[in-house]
Design a protein around this nucleic acid. Structure first.
Lengths: 342, 342
DNA sequence: ATGAAAGCGCTAACAA
DNA sequence: TTGTTAGCGCTTTCAT
């Protein structure tokens, strides 16, 4: 069923059908109705490809994320899709995995679909070297790039993120203020955001002149969904490396949960013997006992802002290149201290 | 940059460029190289829409899921994407929400993109009435429909699912065998799969002649990611409705976690005072203390099977309309009984 | 092995 | 208000 078939059946030209389809106001109501009836009767849907051939926008944005089964990324994608849809945009999602080459080819692919913009979800799309980020420059020459939870300063690239550095700095300060200074820092990603968190932690520790704090910074390289493996990893640090700690700060909630699990195995009680802070304020924080204190990076606020910025950019407005939100520590049972925030 | 530009620069015709692009073997190696060099030099990617105009397959399948932030659905989508990509297919994801009308329009949308097939993830795409499922019939006339975790008997519709009825029946039996027969059954969805689980539970209870067991079947209608709300819901059942129970079986892990949280609040210990069984064997099962016994519905096995079936169907093979896997109970600390399965 | 040319289904000038 | 027509970029016969 094509526009030709419809036009024939309706006794009008294809242009008129096209006008009806695109909601042009230059169609007589009677004509419109006649055409609409045929369209509905035959349940006709215009071919998206033929339509895409025209030059105009397709009201579509590409969303790339490394791993849609990651709790944080999945929620981000969901919020973005919802928000975009509410504003009349479709979204095209690709999960790229964590390999940069693949990312690049996915981006080309998505570009070939004439998206109006692309959203890169998560900070692992930004590398440390210029060469790694070249692909961003290339693409931004064609369409706007929106970064969620990452930052890159370049024309036509817009960043929305949480100030992970300060959030982590303050979370660390809270723990230090509670008198705990032998803190194990767990992380599992060296992405932009991962590095910022680590820097925030280090800054707070250095400021308080905590000796050898970097001996207690450990990277977990296993599957972050396997709490048992994480617990074993922590156990190994405590036992084999002889590291003593009364606090754990993790760059992701699952790592923190793993640390709590370790505590459980050792008969240590949380928070009396071990204080634990996670990051992302995900659903997991309320699944464990005690509940997990965690940094809320205001994902929904971020996705909302990102889409608003995107709409503005597409409308040709001048908008800030970077929108930074503050994180906030949500205090729950896994820490003994209180903070001034709710 | 179009195929014309490339052909001009390479000094060949567009047909030759097209052949190179599509890996035809009717191109002299020297010519191929000449063209490839230009393509790479200009980082040219063919326009997907123009390409889509031709009648052939675009090697794309549409994936629809209600809510990509749901732990189970997100993982399913991820596994499917991965598996499809490994087999040279792209995927187009749409999150539809739980409203049927929207589903329908999404499906039309996805169809207009000439996908080779569509995968419906989760059982909430199948309604109870014929009218609700009419859209499936319509679409299956055009392309194959793959159902994950749902079943519908119709030509060109292929189902891959877990036998939720039996899995839940056996889980219930396990609990009954352990001497617990005042069981609270929590659920939050009346989807096909939700109904099957409930039927399995009821069958086991009826078989043992448990009196009034249906008084302890309760539907939670709030946000399933809010453990606290779930806990309050359970508390309400216990207190206001005066229901006594020493076991909880839930149709989803989060509901079970909520029940454990309720137990924690009441000073009840799990599993001594309350045995709890969840469903899906998600990441959450190892986040709580004690860990949650849960039914593993073998998601990865299912997604693998689904994609294999899909590839076969697209290749014109004759394949079973329905692939059913058995669930298995993974016993963890939230129950006292042991089962024979690992 | 390569090129010329006819569509694919639609949009958007331009005419009427 | 409606119709005619020229592309959009590519694939695919059909010639050569």
């Amino acid at each position: 069923m094509t526009i030709y078939d419809i036009s024939k059946k309706a006794g009008v030209s294809i242009a008129t059908v096209s006008r009806v389809l695109n909601g042009s106001d230059k169609v007589r109501p009677a004509t419109r109705k006649k055409v609409m009836d045929i369209i509905e009767q035959y349940d006709y849907t215009p071919n998206a490809f033929a339509r895409g051939m025209g030059l105009r926008s397709l009201q579509t944005v590409g969303i790339l994320c490394a791993d849609s089964s990651d709790l944080f990324l999945a929620k981000a994608v969901y919020c973005l899709e919802e928000e975009l849809q509410a504003n009349g945009y479709e979204s095209l999602l690709c999960c790229t995995g964590y390999n940069l080459d693949i990312k690049q080819s996915y981006l080309n692919l998505i570009l070939s679909k004439k998206v109006d913009a692309v959203i890169l979800v998560g900070s692992n799309f930004i590398g440390e070297t210029d060469r790694e980020n070249q692909y961003i420059k290339d693409i931004s020459a064609q369409i706007p790039i929106m970064l969620l939870n990452a930052s890159y300063d370049y024309p036509n690239v817009y960043s929305t993120l949480c100030d992970d550095y300060t959030a982590m700095y303050e979370a660390t300060r809270s723990m230090l203020d509670a008198g705990i200074d032998d803190i194990l820092y767990l992380y599992n990603s060296v992405s932009y955001s991962g590095r910022r968190k680590l820097e925030g932690f280090s800054a707070a520790m250095r400021e308080r002149h905590i000796a050898d704090f970097d001996r207690r910074i450990r990277m977990y390289e296993g599957d972050p969904q396997q709490m048992d493996d994480i617990a074993s990893f922590v156990e190994h640090i405590a036992r084999n490396d002889g590291i003593v700690f009364h606090g754990v700060i993790a760059s992701e909630d699952p790592l923190a949960i793993g640390a709590m699990k370790y505590a459980g195995r050792q008969g240590l009680s949380v928070p009396e013997d071990l204080s634990v802070i996670g990051y992302n304020n995900s659903m997991l924080t309320t699944c464990c006992t005690p509940e997990l204190t965690s940094v809320d990076n205001r994902l929904e606020t971020q996705t909302h802002q990102l889409v608003q910025t995107l709409l503005g950019v597409l409308a040709g407005e001048e908008l800030p290149k970077q929108s930074v939100f503050s994180g906030r520590l949500i205090t729950r049972g896994s820490t003994i201290f209180q903070t001034e925030n709710q």
